[in-house]
């Protein structure tokens, strides 16, 4: 049952994409109504601050780590046996 359902979803990437985007929209709208009494710093007062933080952080991390791996850290898997 689960398998069939997942296969159904997997064959419909458009549906997944739109429900994901709907979720993101919901998250942004939700932020307008959040109670900001316990703010730790200025960023906590900005609507959508953590959305930008998440997206930029994620992209930066992928670019930086993958980049470092490609230019420096990457070795054959039996590197130490040679």
């Amino acid at each position: 049952m689960i398998v069939n359902f997942l296969t159904y979803l997997r064959e419909r990437p458009g549906l997944l994409k739109w429900s994901f985007l709907a979720y993101l929209a919901f998250a942004l709208v939700f932020d307008f109504f959040a109670d900001r009494h316990h703010a730790h710093f200025w960023g906590d007062h900005l609507v959508g601050f953590w959305a930008v933080f998440g997206l930029v952080g994620c992209l930066a991390m992928i670019v930086l780590c993958k980049g470092l791996s490609h230019v420096w850290l990457e070795r054959d898997k039996d590197h130490y046996d040679k």
């Binding site: 953590w50 933080f53 990457e74 070795r75 590197h79």
Partner: peptide
């Protein structure tokens, strides 16, 4: 709200960069 944002938009980042994340058979 903070959690929804961080998780959702990290997911978006993955969605945008998924091709770049393809695993290679190497060690670091």
């Amino acid at each position: 709200a903070e959690t929804f944002h961080i998780l959702g938009f990290t997911g978006l980042g993955f969605y945008l960069m998924v091709k770049y994340l393809k695993p290679h058979d190497v060690s670091n």
